[in-house]
Structure formats: C-alpha cells, structure tokens
Design a protein around this nucleic acid. Sequence first.
DNA 1: CGCCAGGTAGGTA
DNA 2: TACCTACATGGC
Length: 276
Amino acid sequence: MRFTPPDGVLNLAQTLDCGQSFRFYPVTLENNIPAWRGVAFSRGLTVYQDENNDLVLDCTEQEFRDIWFDYFDFNTDYKKSREVLSALHPALKEAAEFAGGIRILKQEPFEALCSFIISQNNNIPRIKGIIERLCLHFGEPFLYHNETRYAFPTPKKLASCTPEDLAPLRAGFRAKYLIDAAKRIASGEIDLESVRKMPLPDAKAKLQTISGVGPKVADCALLYGLHRTECFPMDVWMKRAVSLLPRLSPADFSENAGIAQQYLFHYVRMHPELFK
DNA sequence: CGCCAGGTAGGTA
DNA sequence: TACCTACATGGC
C-alpha cells in the first residue's frame, strides 16, 4: 500500500540507517528500485519511496494502521519540530537541513534496551551483526514472503540463557548484561511500560539499576524504546557536536531534544572530518 | 597490523 | 567527586 506522510517529512535512508534502529538493510527490488527491508513487532517489512516521496509498503492497510503508522510516528508533526529547532541556532539549522528527513521510530521497548546495551563500546556494523544473530538463535521464527524470519527474542527466552548460550552471538562482555536485563524484566521487577510513565529522573534511575546500563544506554532506551523525546543521549560525538551550540543546552530543546540529537548525530557522523 | 567503536563497572586517590 | 582501566570482538 501507499502512504503520504501528513507532515511531508520522511527520508527512509536517514531514518532507518542513522543509528537508532539496527534491523533494516538496504535491498534492491525488481526494476532496480532501492528499498529497505527489516523486522519489527514480529513482522517483516519492505519499504521504499516513490518519485513523490510517498511511502510504498508491502503490507495491508490494516497492518499499516495497526503497526507501521505508529512505528514511523506519523502522528507527530516533524515539520513543526524541525522549524522550532532550526530557529534555535544556526548550527542546529544546518544539521536539520542536512538530516531533516529523520523521524524517531517507535521501537519495541525491550529490543531498544538490548540494542543499546549491545551498542556500548561497539560500532554500528557489528551491532547489527550481533542483533541479527541474537534474533536468529533466540527469536521466534515466522514466515515472510515464504521465507523464515525471526522476531526479536522475548525477555523470558533470554532470561533462561547463560552467557555460554549466548556465545554464538560473539557479543563479548555484553552477554551478561543482556541476560541481566532480560531477567529483571521477565521477573516483573522492571516493567518498561511503567518506566515509560515515570518522571524522567526516576525512569532513568530505574533503568540504570540494570547491569550494563549507564546514563547513555538509559537515555537511548528511553528515547528509542519508550519514545521519551525529551531525552538527549550524549556520547563523545555528541559532546563535540554540542560544542557547536554555545549558550544552548539540550534542556532548551524540551520535547524536541531527541529529534535535535538525531539531527546532530547524523550530521556529525556524515562529516567526521569537521570534528577531528 | 593497530586503532577504535552511539560506554560501563569496578577500582583507586 | 574525579579519574583510570579492563572489557570481547571485529570493522576498517
């Protein structure tokens, strides 16, 4: 089916390959059409944009309404956010013009938490590989276009694993962190939907009780998994990027902090030479 | 081959 | 509080 983004904002390459989600890969369809293919919410999806930038998806209207409309966050007006951010600072305006097609995906909370546990001291291609093997070995299989695909593992399934079980992932020291996160959630000690509703400091502190979850991973889990868009995950690259914004701090971005962060992250990542 | 990666835990001063 | 380092692995 086809869909026109109400706010006119969407660049699939920027959105699906900007370090927020890790399960989509570029593919080439018949007629040489470049597209993206991946898995979320236990469903496969292949998407591309036509000459009018409309979204073309291989799903029914029903499934689009149930899953993908919300996944791509089409209820939020990104044009408005981009305008607000652009007015704050010239450097932010430049980043927004460069990466203005980014939307913040509403991912599954447990998947986002695990993804960013895996991300620590790691690079994006290898993060994607580890997550792929995690799903292959421990995720529920399903059929997509007559091929077997794998959902992201449930907390219960991962909680029953030992670090030796996770050896095929080659996740290194992060394996024990994944198991701790899964156990704490499977046991009910941490309920991510409750965390979503907490005041930000409480939510962040709660997540940081998980071994392997520090301030950066907690912010990423909150932003990408629980859609707390006032979060601004701060890593080494972002610290450099923020130095471009004198007299402006992430707190000034308010509800648009996550979007600002994603603009800046993409801009910095694509211009490494400007940031030594 | 060496450097480094969307950091964090555990240790020390 | 403020640093210091080990950590597993492999992309480049």
